[in-house]
């Protein structure tokens, strides 16, 4: 059993991320992942989910930067950490996999060496040991003929194989937390289930915590324990996967689920959300979703939705909704 006072694997408090000093791309992010738990961070483009993920291991490309708040991994603070400490945490504590696996692999380096690189750096393994261990890891992530594959180059691998190699590399440092940024978006649909199945198996075997960043809600219910929904830089709702998928409280979550799963509205049309996703530079007072929100409260003249940012309401155990219309 997970005891409630155990140090969470990842803890993010009141995180703000901005472009320069003016344009906020994520604000007031609070996030907690316990050991062995999979949390899905869900949102459309511009929601701030990817910058949030990058900020967790201090990889924000300038001019993006964290302007407020703290990130701790396994109790160790990342914000303000020295480069030495950061390097030890990356690879040792945290692994990361990305959307485009083939572009994340060095084209001029054999994949076995790349997988073994973290071992050479962090575990001070010799070149031969690292290569042997890399082959083991490649076998573990389901690469057939791992010994031969370890000697091939990135361009000789298919998309699915390259993503398996990335997973092997991310796992080589034996991390506690794996950040997976849209890990299957660039892959073929029939390969997607295999890769997600692999992540799920590794999570169980290694009691790994996974932060799964995705826009695809159909994989969320198959993978996640908890779901965090972001819209235009803020968290709008978070809770256990069953609660979110079956009884979403925030109008945006509701609409997003209907859109993603292509549910029909009345009159034979698909459910959709009117309007467009705001860019981070657009300033919207009150709730960022209110101009597109179908809820009666948001549609009323002079409503609180248009003037004040909504506070969190607890609608059930572990289920938080940032909406003025939510009832506890």
């Amino acid at each position: 059993m997970i005891s409630p006072d155990e140090t969470p694997c990842l803890k993010v408090e009141n995180l703000d991320i901005s472009i320069g000093d003016t344009i906020a791309v994520a604000r007031g992010i609070n996030l907690e992942i316990r050991r062995g738990e999979t949390v899905a961070l869900v949102g459309e483009s511009g929601s701030g989910k990817t910058v949030t993920a990058l900020s967790l291991i201090d990889l924000l490309p300038p001019p993006l930067r964290v302007t407020r708040g703290t990130v701790s991994i396994c109790g160790q603070k990342i914000t303000d950490a020295t480069p030495d400490v950061l390097n030890r945490i990356r690879g040792n504590r945290v692994g990361m996999i990305f959307q485009q696996p083939s572009s994340m692999l060095d084209p001029s380096c054999r994949v076995g060496r790349q997988v073994g690189e973290a071992l050479r750096l962090h575990k001070r393994a010799s070149r031969g040991e690292a290569f042997e261990r890399a082959i083991e890891l490649l076998r573990e992530v389901g690469i057939p003929e791992a010994g031969r594959r370890a000697r091939s180059f990135a361009h000789q691998l298919s998309g699915g194989m390259a993503q398996r190699v990335m997973i092997a590399a991310a796992l080589s440092g034996d991390p506690d937390l794996l950040i997976a940024d849209e890990p299957t978006t660039a892959l073929d649909v029939t390969v997607q289930a295999q890769i997600l199945g692999l992540l799920e198996r590794e999570r169980k075997q290694r009691t790994l915590s996974i932060l799964l960043i995705t826009h695809d809600l159909s994989i969320v219910s198959a993978m996640a324990d908890r779901v965090v929904v972001m819209y235009a830089g803020s968290i709008v709702e978070e809770g256990p996967v069953a609660a979110i998928m079956q009884a979403p409280q925030h109008p945006y979550t509701k609409a997003l689920i209907d859109c993603s799963l292509m549910r029909k509205a009345g009159g034979g049309d698909l459910e959709s959300i009117p309007g467009t996703i705001p860019s981070p530079a657009q300033s919207i007072p009150g709730c960022r979703f209110h101009p597109r929100c179908p809820h009666a409260l948001a549609r009323r003249e002079g409503s609180v939705c248009a003037s004040d940012e909504p506070t969190a309401t607890r609608t059930a155990e572990g289920h938080l909704v940032h909406c003025w219309a939510a009832e506890p």
């Binding site: 483009s45 809600l217 997003l256 859109c259 993603s260 959709s272 959300i273 996703i277």
Partner: peptide, 15 residues
């Protein structure tokens, strides 16, 4: 396109 926009476009094409 994003999910919320995708549904708009599919509806439009259908229409």
């Amino acid at each position: 396109l994003d999910a919320s926009i995708r549904a708009q476009i599919l509806n439009l094409l259908n229409d």
